[in-house]
Computed example of a mutant assay.
Amino acid sequence: MISLARRIFFVCSLAVSSLPALAQDLPPLSHRVTGGDTEYTVQRGDSLTAIGARFGVPPRLVAQQNDLHFNTSRIKPGQRLHIQHSHIVPASLDDGILVNLPQSMLFNFSQGTLVSAYPVGLGKPSWPTPQGEFRIVNRQANKPWLVPKSIQEEMRREGKIVQEEVSPGPDNPLGKHWLGLNLWGYGIHGTIAPASVYHFQSHGCIRLHPDDIAEFFDQVRIGTQGRLIYQPVLLAVIEDGRILLEVHRDIYKKGIDPARTVRDLAEANGLSQSIDWPKVDAVIAAQDGLAEEVGHLPGNGSKGQP
């Protein structure tokens, strides 16, 4: 399978703030979109949910993109699927890790260049992943899981066997790679449940697919800086003049109005007259989480897919 890190292409884009879109409040132009179109061969044990998690696409969209019925269609090993998985990069860093929580995507930068991008699993709404700055303070392979008291208490409430420590191996939910953050108790790690990536099911930690964390682990060192942001709405202008919109659920209930956000951003950047507003309404209603074309600047080249 082709790694998302190797399927990055660069185009001009505009990241979106969840704040009212006054010009001085907007983040800088991003210049990047990640993902694209991939032909994927179904492997033994695959499901639409697992494939969607691998690429950062809701499983019902994987079904829709391939004329399958999500609830009744069965996929088979060797079957070829088309996966469209374009995402707007919300902001650029000179160096470090950017995680956009509602987008469920992690972006890694080095010297201003986007090195890699991965779908991630994040904290459930009742146990959200925090926002803010962080740095990597621990880098460890095959780390035992020292179960926090809060999770032990949850195990007790749910009638499960209460564990204080889980040794490395097939039952360790951290997987084989751990990157500890200076935010106490939080880390970026693998998982023994790859289908849980691109979902909000963790106790706040950031999960990557085992193949992705193995690749990412080699890119990161102790002291690497990072930022956890919350931008469910992203608007982009790419180099051929297309205007793209990506909308995600306000998963942590921050009260963000996507329609207001898009309109404020469009007005602040002189895009209002170039946007197809019924298309914007459709993207907002669907909240599919992929970059969709919603307009085109005059005097540019032909239209195409993100």
Rank of each mutant, 00 (worst) to 15 (best):
D37P: 00
I88W: 01
P58N: 11
G56E: 07
A53M: 05
P59G: 07
R44S: 14
A53V: 07
L61Q: 11
G36Q: 10
G121D: 05
S30P: 03
A53I: 04
L81H: 01
L48I: 07
L48M: 15
A63L: 06
L106D: 02
D94K: 15
T113D: 06
F70C: 12
P102R: 15
I97M: 04
Q64A: 15
L29Y: 03
G78M: 06
T113A: 14
S47V: 03
L98M: 05
E39D: 10
P27T: 13
S47L: 04
G123F: 01
I88V: 14
I75S: 08
L101K: 09
L122I: 06
I97D: 02
R60K: 14
H69F: 03
T38K: 11
Q65E: 12
P59W: 02
L68V: 05
N71T: 10
L101N: 10
A50K: 15
G121W: 00
K76M: 07
A117L: 02
D46R: 12
R54T: 14
I88N: 07
P77A: 11
G123K: 09
I51D: 05
D94E: 14
P90S: 11
S92T: 14
S47A: 11
G52S: 08
R60I: 07
S47G: 13
S47Q: 04
L93S: 05
F109Q: 11
Q103N: 10
G52K: 09
S30F: 01
F107V: 04
A63H: 06
G96Y: 00
D94P: 02
S116C: 08
G121A: 07
G45E: 12
V115I: 13
H31M: 13
G36R: 11
S116K: 10
F55A: 12
K76F: 08
P58D: 13
P28E: 10
D37V: 15
Q111D: 12
T72C: 04
A91I: 07
T34I: 10
F70M: 15
I83L: 03
F109P: 02
R32W: 01
L29G: 10
E39G: 09
N108T: 10
G121T: 08
G52T: 08
L68M: 08
K76S: 12
Y40V: 07
P119R: 13
L68P: 03
H69M: 12
S73R: 12
F109S: 10
P77M: 09
L29H: 05
S47I: 05
V115A: 10
R54A: 13
S104K: 15
H82Q: 14
